[in-house]
């Protein structure tokens, strides 16, 4: 009797655990990337827990609103945060058999990211400062180029596993007979390029800059303060976490257990932390070795990502079918 109940409860509990873990780990990942970047650039590194302190500080501060800020401006941080938390919960990290798995597939995930993007762009334009609308326009430019590439990457993975559900994709890739998929190599490169653009990372945008000519993400959130800013920063960290987990789940799926059982938890958790650590370090390396592009080079960068994703699909159709 108790065993039966555990069978029903375990997936739900694990799902909650996954969500809580995403909320807790996301700032840590940001801190780790910042630390690696500081090491690589010969600076003295900020402490690993710095993002948490920043969030705590911002949550304590008072919110200052512009006179003409509408209710949308006040609601946007919550919407964005909710979208990112949901996205992080959908991506299978601890198990491929979680309740949220069938609820949303890869295409819905892209939709959730798009919803957050629309709200942050609207909020950027809401107060009517020139920086806000400049940032919003640039964000939409990046977004409309990055989205098709991301969808194409998902379609390639879906063609391989015959399903758009993330759990099915991951379990097919992780547990099927070992096969070399050249198409996934292409898709992986395309996905990394899209992630760099979507997370406002160096070749496209600089997350630490406040230089008016170059900033994209920062320009939109200049007007935010206090707990609103904290939520947005946290959401940005969650987005980086969700994208990292997504990349790991699609291209390095080994070690994500099938069954949602607590017995598998330590292995899954250790694997995830190890992979995230390496992924964060690689991100810092990319950010250190590449220079920020001019904004008008970004379409070319994302066009290349789209092309790679299309090639991935073509290569899949040519090389990996009909055998």
């Amino acid at each position: 009797m108790i065993g039966d109940r555990m069978d029903i409860l375990a997936p739900i509990l694990l799902q909650f655990l996954e969500l809580l873990m995403a909320l807790a780990l996301a700032p840590l990942l940001t801190g780790w990337v910042n630390q690696c970047r500081a090491w690589l650039q010969n600076r003295s590194a900020p402490p690993l827990l710095q993002p948490y302190r920043q969030l705590a500080k911002l949550f304590e501060k008072e919110v200052v609103l512009a006179h003409n800020a509408s209710s949308l401006f006040r609601a946007a941080p919550y919407v964005i945060f909710a979208c990112m938390a949901l996205a992080a919960a959908i991506v299978p990290t601890l198990s491929t058999d979680l309740p949220f798995g069938p609820a949303a597939d890869a295409i819905a995930l892209v939709g959730i990211f798009a919803l957050a993007r629309v709200f942050i762009a609207l909020a950027g334009m809401d107060v009517g400062t020139s920086f806000g609308s400049l940032g919003a326009r640039r964000e939409m430019l990046i977004g409309f180029l990055a989205e098709p590439a991301l969808l194409m990457v998902f379609f390639t993975a879906s063609l391989i596993s015959q399903s758009t559900s993330l759990s099915t994709i991951v379990s097919t890739l992780a547990r099927g007979e070992f096969t070399i998929y050249p198409s996934l190599a292409f898709a992986g490169i395309a996905f990394s390029m899209v992630s760099l653009a979507e997370n406002a990372r160096v070749p496209v945008d600089n997350p630490t800059t406040h230089l008016e000519l170059t900033m994209i993400h920062e320009a939109m959130i200049l007007e935010y303060s206090g707990r609103h800013l904290a939520l947005i920063e946290w959401a940005a960290a969650l987005k980086l976490y969700a994208y990292s987990c997504l990349g790991l789940a699609l291209f390095f799926p080994w070690g994500i257990p099938q069954a949602a059982e607590f017995a598998n938890l330590p292995v899954a958790l250790a694997g995830l932390l190890f992979k995230l650590g390496i992924g964060g370090f690689l991100l810092a390396v990319i950010e250190t070795v590449s220079a920020k592009m001019r904004i008008f080079r970004a379409p070319e960068f994302l066009g290349t990502a789209f092309m790679l994703a299309v090639l991935a699909m073509l290569v899949h159709l040519l090389l990996e079918t009909g055998k």
């Binding site: 070399i180 050249p182 198409s183 190599a185 292409f186 490169i189 790679l308 090639l311 290569v315 090389l319 990996e320």
Partner: peptide, 10 residues
């Protein structure tokens, strides 16, 4: 060989 071919195309 397929993987190498894909790299060649890339």
């Amino acid at each position: 060989i397929n993987l190498l071919a894909a790299i060649l195309l890339l």
